[in-house]
Design a protein around this nucleic acid. Structure first.
Lengths: 233, 233
DNA sequence: ACAATAGTGTCTGTGAGACAGTATCGA
DNA sequence: TCGATACTGTCTCACAGACACTATTGT
C-alpha cells in the first residue's frame, strides 16, 4: 500500500507502534473525610492478585469515551454512591513498575466529603471497604498496595498547604456546622493549633449564623453556621 | 484454556479489553521564559495534519520504559537541548477529542528557564520553533493546535499564583541577576506593579550580593545578586 | 457554685503598601 | 548641572498570634 508522506494515514500508522499500545490510564480516588478527629481515606481490600489482602485506593480505568474527570465522577458513583461533592485533580503518577501486571498511568483525584455522605457498605460492591486514618497508612501500619502510600502522603501534603489559604475545610462538613468543629478539622489538616479568636476572625466573613444551636455537647451549646449563603453583591 | 478465577492470568486478560488499547499518553512541555519584558512560551509550527501550520506545544509520547518525568526530560533534551532546568508537573488533560486522530492523555510539564539557555535553532529538528508571547496565544492572535491554548492559559494562571508565595521567579534568570530585572519579571508574571522597597524587603533575605555591577544600563549601575548561596545553617 | 465549653475584646508583632528621600551613573 | 536609574528610611495599615476576659450550659 502506497504511502503519501505527511498524510493523515501515515500519522495514524506511526502512532500505532507497539510501544504505545499497552499503556492504560486509570483514575484513582482519594476520598478524604474527617471522622473521630482524624483525617481518613477510603480504601478497599484487594481480593485478587497482586497485593491480595492489601489496601488500595478505589479507582477505575478511563474509558475511551469519557474524560478523566468523568471517569473520576463515575468511580465515585460506583464505589461509594457519591455525587455532587468537591473533586479536584491531584497529580498524575506514572512510575514504570507501579503495577506489576501492566503499565498504568494513574491520574489521581481528591474528593472531600463529610463522613455522613459516604455509603460504601451499600451498592453492588463485593470488596471490603473502609475509612483508614491517613496516619496509619503513612506510618506503615497498614499494608498498602501499589504506590498508594506515596499518593496518600502527597494528598495529605497538598491538603495541609491548601487549608491555610483556601476554604476547603468547609467541604468536610454538611450545610450546617459549628465553628468549634470546623476549627478542630482545620487543626487536624493543618497539623497545628490555632487560637479561637484568630480562627473566627478569619472565617467569620464567609459564614452566616443560622440561629440554631447544637445542644449535644452537654455544656454551653455552640451555634450552627452555614458557608457563604450571603455572598456579597 | 482453563481459567482459574482470581488468578493473575485472568487479571491480565481482563485488562486487555479493546476499550483500553488505543489510548496514548504524551507529555506536553510548557517551556516558559521572559524575553523583551514579556512572558513567552516555546511553540513549534506543525508541518503535518492535523492543524497543519498551527502552533503547538512541543511534546513526546511516553515510552513503555520511562516515567512521565523522564519523558518530559527527554523531550526537553530533544526539542530544545535543555538540561538541568526547573521542571514541574502542571496538570493532566484528558478531553475525549483533544486530538482528532486518536485518544491522547497529555500530562503537561512546566519548565522555566532564562532565554539564553534555549537552543531550539540547533539540534536535529526540522520543524520551526519560536518563542511566542503567551498574551498573543491567549488573545487568539496565534493559530493554536489542539487544546494548547487552554493549557497555556492554565500555566499562566498557575505561574501567577505561585510567583507570590514561592521563589519561582529566580528560575527565569541565570546564576547572577540584578534586582530591578528580577522585579520586572515578577511584575510581568504577577500582572501587577510592586514597590521597590517592598519587593526588596521580600527577596533580600534569600539573595546575596556578589559585589559585581551591571554597567550596561547607561545610568547608575545595579548590583548583581545570587540566589541563596548562603543558606542559613 | 463549679467545671467545661462557647464566644469576645484588645494588645502586640510582622510584613506588605505607600511615598519621600538619598546615591550614582552618563551626558 | 540634570535626567534617569538604583537604592534606602520610615510611616501606615491589615492581619495573625497571643492571652485575658465574659457567657451559657449541665450537674
Amino acid at each position: 500500500m502506497k504511502k503519501e508522506p505527511g498524510s493523515e494515514r501515515e500519522y495514524l500508522e506511526s502512532y500505532n507502534h507497539d510501544q504505545f499500545k499497552k499503556m492504560s490510564v486509570a483514575t484513582d480516588l482519594l476520598i478524604l473525610t474527617i471522622e473521630d478527629d482524624r483525617l481518613k481515606v477510603l480504601m478497599t481490600k484487594r481480593s485478587e492478585y497482586p497485593f491480595k489482602g492489601h489496601w488500595a485506593l478505589p479507582g477505575v480505568f478511563v474509558g475511551m469515551e469519557e474524560t478523566l474527570e468523568e471517569a473520576a465522577v463515575r468511580g465515585l458513583k460506583e464505589e461509594v454512591n457519591l455525587e455532587n461533592i468537591y473533586l479536584e485533580q491531584l497529580y498524575t503518577f506514572g512510575g514504570v513498575n507501579r503495577d506489576p501486571r501492566l503499565r498504568v498511568i494513574s491520574v489521581t483525584y481528591m474528593a472531600l466529603t463529610p463522613p455522613e455522605k459516604l455509603d460504601f457498605k451499600a451498592g453492588n460492591r463485593v470488596t471490603e471497604a473502609k475509612l483508614i486514618p491517613v496516619e496509619e497508612v503513612i506510618g506503615g501500619e497498614i499494608e498498602t498496595a501499589f504506590d498508594h502510600r506515596e499518593i496518600i502522603r502527597y494528598a495529605k501534603w497538598r491538603l495541609k498547604n491548601k487549608v491555610e489559604y483556601t476554604d476547603i475545610v468547609f467541604h468536610f462538613f454538611p450545610d450546617m456546622f459549628t465553628l468549634p468543629k470546623l476549627q478542630k478539622a482545620y487543626e487536624i489538616i493543618a497539623e497545628k493549633k490555632v487560637y479561637k479568636t484568630n480562627f473566627r476572625k478569619k472565617f467569620m466573613p464567609v459564614v452566616t449564623d443560622t440561629g440554631l444551636e447544637d445542644r449535644s455537647g452537654g455544656k454551653r451549646p455552640s451555634r450552627y453556621y452555614c458557608y457563604r449563603p450571603e455572598e456579597k453583591s
